[in-house]
Structures are given as structure tokens and as C-alpha cells.
Design a protein around this nucleic acid. Structure first.
Lengths: 253, 253
DNA sequence: CGAGTTCTTGAGCATTCTCAAACCCTGTGG
DNA sequence: CCACAGGGTTTGAGAATGCTCAAGAACTCG
């Protein structure tokens, strides 16, 4: 697993930022969130955060790194159902449900904030704006998984990959207050530790086919793919290929 | 559209029943829900309840009939993302989000209760148990759509269909207080107005392939399929085929 | 009886999968 | 400094699952 640490070096800034992507949040609300007590948990790559069936008493928020939510098929197949980037709460559902539905797993070196369920509940009861913002994140996450449903059900391999890349890029750009500055290299979609196997698990394709499809897309000039990740020069074009319409992310205020 | 009517003949009994599937609900909470003012809206088959982009001021609850939630691909493909049966709230997300993400559409003659957003919000603020139960429904619905993601991403046509049928059956059995009695003919899964096209749209397959797969399953003795719907004698067996594990429905109290 | 809807069937094709192996880079230990 | 191990990517050949187009059959309703 990992070790708990002092909280001094880390903050919930990114969480507040994420809340502000969807909701107006007054300064009082923001301060209240930043004042939440939390522990920090460090995970290595492939660190299992929780497993289906676990009883969970904390809400987790990604401080750095990246997390996947997945369910296993009986035949050994793994379906990734969501990715979480810094600022994202992993399991707001555990405010209402006691047992984990899914596996959560760090995809690279990751730090998480652990907030006691009771504390978050209390805060949500006291500060209506916080409750509203949290619920909106929950609703947006549901909207995202429904869009993934469309992706798996209705789109070709190429479209699925294009769509996923666009989503990751846009969400990545919106991480942290200094978004624009921090990730100025807009071309690269995957320094996040997302590899072709991950893409396969998220899109319901085989790694082999993901690779072939990426190479075909590269041949058409849609992107460049290789050991260093995937580079995209023309995001609008990729978006058109993947039928990407960002409304489902609800980023506009 | 349809016409609003007097509320006297209809009640939110089934909603209370659905809440009790996931949560303990004290009598006071239940009474409060039953006391909610609501209007009744009648829809014919294919009646559009709302369309992506609509501003919505009401929360809808299915009184009778069946509703689908879908998103359209640009190429004309339709992906059904959820089915709603009597007692199910359609759009709890609109407590937190103002614009509709998806299309909602009646699949047969359907009656809906319209509850003003403000009223439901007020009730949830006053009665903590109701808020808890509503949020739990919201969380369970999210869990269901994640299971659908596994269905589309990881399973064969036969498994997808088997899984969907098992889910519909189990949810159908749990509708209304008199569940056991009302739907005593446990064999039939689809008097609900779910046809092969609907199954196709929900599973990401073509209607033609759904038909062929059903016939193949019939040949193996898994079910009987025809104009009258689909009949299943051995649900456990069908469940095994579809890797159906009902935990994701959170029906156990 | 005719129109509409849903189900059924056929033939050919496309996308995606499976199995299997090679390759490339990076980091590690002799 | 080189051999080697390991993760990720790349490629090939053959097979399968599911799709497209197209038409026919069965039941329902007016």
C-alpha cells in the first residue's frame, strides 16, 4: 500500500478548481473545502486503492497522478469505466453507498487526499454551496460514463480512440488553476501514463487493434504515436473524427 | 406531448418502494414523499419527454409504462443508456444540472409524475432520510450505467443480451409493493414493450444480429423468442451465460 | 383487405479478435 | 561495458464475430 503523511505540503486547491469548473463557489465555500482535514496516501503504479466489495469510510481526491476505475469480467477482461485526474474526487458515491462497486487503481505514481466521510458530509450539510458543487461533480461524472456508453456502443475503433483522447486532453487542460501555463504543450495527450493497453481497456478494444488503429491514424496525419505517448497537432480535426462534442463534460461554468 | 391531469388517481407508492429497495426509510419520510404535490403527464409510445439541451424544471417519476434514456450519434445511431420502470425517477441529475444531457422517451403508453424541482429540493433539505434515499438511487443508477459499460465493452452479443434480460427481469420483479404477486409469470421478460430493436439500441448491436442471436439462444434452449416477447424458464442459467451478478443493482436493503 | 410494425432469413463483407513472435527502449547487474 | 530482463509497442496471418443490404413473413389494427 502506502504511507500516510503530514498534510502541510499538499492542498485541495485542485478540488476547488474542479468544483469551479461546474459551479459558482463563493469564497466562503472554497475556504471551507480547503479547510477540510485530510491525510495523504501515496501509491505506486498499479497500486490498488480499493477493490469491489470493500467497505469504505473515506472519500478520496486525486492530488497528483492518475487513477482508473475498472470492473473485471469473469473471463479476465478488464473494462476501465473512468479516469480520474488531479482535483477529481474518486468516490463520491461512497457518501451514499457503503460497499465499493468497482476497483480503483493508480495508473502511475499517485497521491491521494483521504477525507473522512463524516467530515465531508458535515461540510455539505453546513455549506449548501459545497453540497451543490459536489453533487454537480457527481452528476457530471455520470454524464461522462453515459458518453462512454455511446462510445462503446456506437463508434468505430478509430472514433473511440479519437473521442477518448479528446476527453483526456480537455480534462487534462482543465486541471489546476494554472492550467494554461502548466500544460502549455498542447500537442501531447499522454504524458499521463496512459498507454495503449489502457486505451484498449477503456475503449473495449484489444491492445493489438488499438495499436493498428493508432498507426492507421498516424498514416492519415491525425496524430503521432510512439513510445513517448501520443501527439496531436490538430485537435479540432481529431474531435470531428471522434464525434467529440464537449458539452457532456459541462465545463462551461 | 400530452395533458396534465388531476393527481387523485395516482400515487408515488412505487417511488417509495424503489427507495426502500436501497435504503431504510422511516414512516415519516415515506409519508413526506407520498405527500409531494405532483402533476401527471400521459405519453403515447415514442413520446419525447425531453431532448438534449432542454432546460428542465421538474423531476419526473415513472408511474406506469417504460422510458428510455438515449443519446444520438451523428451518423444516426441511437444508444440507449438506461431503462426506467415504474417507481424510477428519470432525472435526479436535474436537481444539480440545468440542461438535459440526453433524450428521454416513452417506450410505450406511459404516465409520469412531475414534481417541481423546488419542492423536491425542499423536501430533501427537510427530511434527511429522503435526501439520502434519493442520492442512493442516483448512485445506484450510476452503478448500473457502469455495468452497461462492461456489457458493451467486454461481452459477446449473446452475453450482452442475456445480461440485459436478467437486469430487466430483476428490476421488473421489484417494481411496486405487490411485486411477487403482480408479475407472477416469472418466465416472460418482455411484456414491457421492449422489442428487438430496443435491445439492439441498448446493447450496441444491430437489430438483425440481435434477432439471429436470440434464435441461436433459442436453439440452445436458453429462452424462447417470438412476437409475444421473450420467455425464459431458467433464469439462473441465463444469468450464468451473461455473467450476471446482481450486486451492482444494490437491491439487498 | 391493406397498411404498418416487428420479426425472420439470406448472402457477402468488414471490422475486430486471437495467437504468436519480434522489436525497441530503459534500467540493472555482472 | 555488455548481457539481460521487462514493459510497452509493432507486425503478421488466419479466423470470427457482427454488419450491410435486401427482401420476405407474420401478426395487428383500422
Amino acid at each position: 500500500m502506502a504511507l500516510a503523511m503530514t498534510t502541510s505540503t499538499y492542498s485541495l486547491d485542485d478540488l476547488v478548481h474542479r468544483m469551479r469548473l461546474h459551479s459558482q463557489l463563493c469564497d466562503l465555500d472554497a475556504a471551507a473545502v480547503l479547510g477540510l482535514p485530510f491525510a495523504v496516501l501515496a501509491h505506486d503504479q498499479f497500486g490498488a486503492i480499493m477493490t469491489e466489495g470493500d467497505a469504505v469510510d473515506f472519500c478520496f481526491v486525486v492530488l497528483s497522478g492518475m487513477v482508473e476505475r475498472s470492473r473485471l469480467g469473469l473471463d479476465g477482461g478488464k473494462q476501465i469505466m473512468a479516469f480520474y485526474v488531479p482535483g477529481d474526487p474518486l468516490n463520491l458515491d461512497h457518501l451514499f453507498i457503503d460497499r465499493a462497486d468497482d476497483d480503483l487503481c493508480a495508473m502511475r505514481e499517485t497521491r491521494l487526499a483521504l477525507i473522512a466521510r463524516a467530515d465531508l458530509r458535515q461540510l455539505m450539510a453546513d455549506q449548501h454551496g459545497v453540497a451543490q458543487a459536489a453533487m454537480r461533480i457527481f452528476a457530471v461524472d455520470a454524464s461522462i460514463s453515459r458518453e462512454w456508453l455511446v462510445n462503446l456502443g456506437q463508434r468505430t475503433a478509430e472514433q473511440r480512440i479519437a473521442h477518448l483522447l479528446c476527453e483526456l486532453q480537455l480534462r487534462g487542460e482543465n486541471v489546476g488553476a494554472d492550467s494554461a501555463g502548466a500544460r502549455s504543450d498542447r500537442a501531447y495527450a499522454t504524458p499521463w501514463g496512459v498507454n495503449q493497453v489502457n486505451i484498449a481497456e477503456a475503449t473495449g478494444l484489444t491492445p493489438v487493434h488499438v495499436n493498428r488503429t493508432l498507426k492507421a491514424m498516424e498514416a492519415r496525419g491525425l496524430l503521432r504515436s510512439g513510445r513517448n505517448g501520443i501527439a496531436v497537432d490538430d485537435w479540432p480535426r481529431l474531435g470531428r473524427v471522434g464525434e467529440f462534442d464537449s458539452r457532456y463534460l459541462h465545463l462551461g461554468a
